[in-house]
Design a protein around this nucleic acid. Structure first.
Lengths: 156, 156
DNA sequence: CCCAATTAAGTTGCACGCAATTTAATTGAG
DNA sequence: CTCAATTAAATTGCGTGCAACTTAATTGGG
């Protein structure tokens, strides 16, 4: 039995009251839920996110992918290389500006979309929520994200 | 300009409608918010989570820490070794059952708590929410986590 | 008592995330 | 036009997460 919490415990530091931990552990749980759904497609979860962006429109720069996914080139470059090796996409230097690398889906990458189409319904089923409830929660979490990412407003 | 989405786009696959991505990106944003708050203490974010558990009561087994944090020994063992090297905790084999390793805070680890006490208020300020709003959101996300982690109920 | 099964940590290998740095291309002030 | 500053990716190094496996200790059926 672990040693008991002293009476001086500061409530704000209790693990199960922390929003940060709820987010962190739920995000990991979500990734674990996706794993068996993505394994048959040969995708990891971050690779799936890249495809979600590319399926909306490919030919974007690495930095645009990064803005969309909140990831930097240090994460994306090796991830995109692995996806290119797997045959889902092509990376091409932009001839107008050789610093840029544009990312294009291959036919195989485009066709993965149909297999992925069944995934959202699986997640919905697991959540035991209505579509409306999930949308509302998604929006709340998006709003939180935008506030967390912003600098603290100056106390005018 | 990236290629446009075809009219056949399946709405459920749009990145910004995905709860999974909202969770994922918000969790990363939260970690980035904590980073400058934890850096002065010499802690990473997962290390801080371990301390939250230990501050509630130390002497627990590695597996108990893992149940609490939803992490396995493959993650915790090296992380705890680094924290021991840093001087925050001690790992000791349980003499009653030599398979078990119990984790104890050092005096330095116990004292970190006072410096950490200021952190929740910083996060609250960034969230621009009331305590009540944050509690409600935390509970919703915890409920989602429990559902995601559970196997799909059999369709009786 | 014995040994097969179980259990708790630890190890290995791989894919992220991200800070810090490097490389290469482009821009723009003078 | 020139070169310092800027920009876009890529690289390096480190700390997670986690699957798969190994090691060592304990348990329990016969």
């Amino acid at each position: 039995m672990p040693n008991a919490t002293p009476a001086t415990a500061h409530n704000a530091l209790l693990l199960d009251q922390q929003l940060c931990f709820a987010l962190y552990s739920s995000s990991l749980a979500m990734t674990k839920l996706y794993k068996p759904l993505l394994e048959p497609l040969g995708l990891t979860y971050p690779q799936y996110l890249v495809l979600l962006v590319l399926w909306e429109g490919d030919g974007c720069m690495v930095s645009e992918l990064g803005e969309r996914l909140y990831l930097d080139s240090g994460t994306l470059t090796p991830l995109l290389k692995r996806m290119q090796t797997a045959g889902w996409l092509q990376r091409q230097r932009d001839s107008d500006d050789e610093r840029r690398v544009r990312v294009y889906l291959t036919e195989a990458g485009r066709q993965l979309r149909e297999q992925a189409a069944a995934i959202p319904a699986c997640v919905l089923a697991h959540s035991q929520c209505t579509v409306q409830e999930l949308q509302a929660l998604t929006q709340q979490i998006q709003q939180l994200r935008s506030r967390l990412a912003a600098p603290l407003p100056a106390a005018s």
